[in-house]
Write a protein that binds this DNA or RNA. Structure first.
Length: 582
RNA sequence: GUCCCGGUAGCUCAGCAGGAUAGAGCACAGGUUUCCUAAACCUGGGGUCAGGGGUUCGAAUCCCUUCCGGGACACCA
């Protein structure tokens, strides 16, 4: 039940009935929103100002006409024209109560939407190289992608969560050589310091042991070309197992793990993608000018296979084949995105680190080319995370070589704190993450503050159950309480905020901004805590009124409503809604 | 040199697909409370929304431009 969407429909209907307004105007710019100032009523719309010019009327005159129509809507108590042509609507007393009632009946589904109209969306995120454990840098994209996938699902888009395994490039060969060294070590050889250019982390030690267990000394006698594929496959599979564990510590699971290597095994789908583009004239043999700026040492002017990404807004055309004849990473990525398209996806979202920003245009170009313009790719970039402890930068890890692992952070502060804080900032703004502050139990810590609101709600319910015998235990039963008795300003304000939840979901989904959920929950928590605090000075505002069962029931309904939305929001963020603080 | 992302209160940041007097937390100032339902609460000061142009009835929001910060710039992934 999205009140704002419902009234936007009322407004559009009212406009359509007006003789003074020509038919066929674009009504999509009409917005119904909560006014900033409560004195302006419950709802406000810009309809008259948006349409005035095309209707050939003064905004205030048109507003008057629309307002007159809106007065006929049953739930409307009063309509006023204000300012430059705003239409302010006051709803009949008790309207917000009905929203609460709806929230109580839908429970966790309150706010769930058909907004996405069943359009399938592919969300690709993390896609970390399978060359070691996940580090904190991966963490933000992982949490962001996961929360966005949940958000889009809730908003009515069937989502496929996907991870692209970069198991085909030179880096996994390096991984294999590094693992081979550990294999020799496992067989008793002294390997000394790990040479530069190989992965030094001791997470490869078990891989060496496992190789020794499976193969004994058999690999030692082989040439690198022979052992490398064997070792590589084993190492990649071990790394992916580790990464899945790291992800699961964060509460993240994927529907699809897609192997880059699989694109060229057997049927060469990269070749097919290139051939298709060549056919449509988007691939040609040509030369590139060396980039301006920092000169490149070993620049080699040569004719190469290029994708005409400039046709789709990119700055230069992009190579598909390296000088050694193998495919570029980009070529594989084109084939991969073509595969998504072939699987039926017309809406794709990729979540990348900000350092890949320069890659966005060419990938979008590729998706357009490969889909004949019928598919879109949105790329969401996540900025860096600055990890600190009490303000001091944190670096270096005991075991991983050179970085702080995701696992270390999750183990130290917990999944909930990591996830919430990663989402308590816009994705394209840098983020400070302080290991000490996020576990503080204080008002200043938003994780605690929001979880505490949920815990407090449940505490109130527990206390109420002690004060009154035979209270219903299920939320929906409270929809039948005497909700009309919720007439305190703070209570009404909370109900209005709950009514904003379905609207927020659609907005956040449209903007691809799950952080808005976190901020919404923070504001809701804040208002709930404030209402609780009012009961200290003003005992007649307490949620539990021992001498008035009916009023208590009504207020508990509100508590249930708040708890339901907080729980629902937290679950989209992947944060646990605890019923008790420890 | 080109491209991308940022610049909002002293600090950290929101700002809802252009809307009415720009918000929150911290910090600061003042006050209340030591009670209880669960870790105190209330009030207040504070802003050239980086600068300048433009579009619009209306701009922090859209466009252009300048400045500042970060990132990326064949054949790495």
């Amino acid at each position: 039940m999205n009140v704002y969407a419902i009234f936007a429909d009322h407004v559009r209907a009212a406009v359509a009935e007006l003789d003074a307004v020509p038919a066929g105007l674009d009504l999509s710019r009409i917005v119904v929103e909560p006014p900033r100032d409560a004195a302006h009523g419950d709802l406000a719309t810009n309809a008259a100002m948006v349409l005035a010019k095309e209707a050939g009327l003064k905004p205030r005159d048109l507003a008057g006409l629309i307002a007159a129509r809106l007065e006929g809507v049953p739930e409307v108590a009063r309509v006023e024209v204000a300012g430059p042509g705003f239409i302010n609507i006051a709803l009949s007393p008790g309207y917000w109560v009905r929203v609460l009632e709806a929230a109580l009946r839908s429970g966790p589904d309150f706010g769930r939407s058909t907004f996405g109209a069943g359009t399938p969306v592919n969300v690709e995120y993390v896609s970390a190289n399978p060359t070691g454990p996940m580090h904190v840098g991966h963490c933000r994209g992982a949490v962001f992608g996961d929360a966005m996938a949940s958000l889009l699902t809730f908003a009515g888009f069937p989502v496929t969560r996907e991870y692209y395994i970069n198991d085909a490039g030179a880096q996994v060969d390096v991984l294999a050589r590094s693992a081979f060294l550990r294999y020799r070590e496992a067989l008793g050889e002294t390997i000394g310091a790990i040479p530069d250019g190989l992965y030094p982390g001791d997470y490869l030690v078990p891989v060496g042991t496992e190789l020794a267990r499976i193969h004994g000394r058999a690999l030692l006698g082989l040439a690198e070309a022979e052992w490398l594929p064997i070792v590589r496959a084993e190492a990649i599979s071990a790394m992916m197992a580790m990464i899945r564990e790291d992800l699961s510590a964060l509460g993240i699971a994927f529907d699809v793990f897609f192997s880059e290597r699989s694109l060229t095994e057997g049927d060469d789908r990269v070749a097919r993608a290139i051939a298709q583009l060549r056919e449509s004239g988007e691939v040609y043999q040509g030369r590139l000018a060396p980039p301006k700026g920092a000169p490149i040492e070993d620049w080699e002017d040569r004719e190469q296979t290029l994708f005409r990404s400039t046709d789709f807004g990119d700055d230069v055309d992009r190579p598909l084949v390296k000088s050694d004849g193998s495919y570029t990473y980009f070529a594989g990525d084109i084939a991969y995105h073509k595969d998504k398209f072939d699987r039926g996806f017309r809406r794709m979202i990729d979540v990348w680190g900000a350092d890949h920003g320069g890659y966005v245009k060419r990938m979008q170009a590729a998706v357009k080319a490969v889909s004949g313009g019928t598919a879109t790719l949105d790329v969401e970039l996540c900025q860096l995370v600055r990890l600190t402890r009490n303000g001091e930068p944190v670096r270096m890890s005991k075991r991983a070589g050179s970085f702080v692992t995701l696992r270390e952070v999750v183990d130290e502060v917990g999944r909930d704190a990591v996830r919430f804080m990663m989402l308590f900032r816009k994705n394209d703004a840098p983020l400070d993450f302080d290991l000490a502050k996020v576990i503080e139990q204080s008002r200043e810590n938003p994780v605690f503050y929001v979880q505490y609101a949920h815990a407090r709600a449940h505490s109130i319910l527990r206390n109420a159950a002690e004060a009154f015998a035979d209270l219903p235990s299920d939320r929906a039963a409270f929809a039948d309480a005497a909700l009309a008795r919720l007439n305190d300003a703070g209570e009404t304000s909370l109900m209005m905020r709950l009514a904003g939840w379905p609207r927020l979901i659609e907005q956040a989904a449209t903007a691809r901004e799950p952080h808005r959920i976190a901020f919404f929950l923070y504001d809701l928590a804040s208002e709930f805590h404030a209402q609780w605090n009012r009961g200290k000075d003003l005992p007649h505002l307490r949620f539990i009124m021992e001498n008035d069962r009916e009023l208590t029931m009504a207020r508990l309904a509100l508590v249930h409503g708040v708890a339901a939305v907080v729980a629902s929001g937290l679950s989209l963020l992947g944060v646990e809604a605890v019923e008790e603080m420890k």
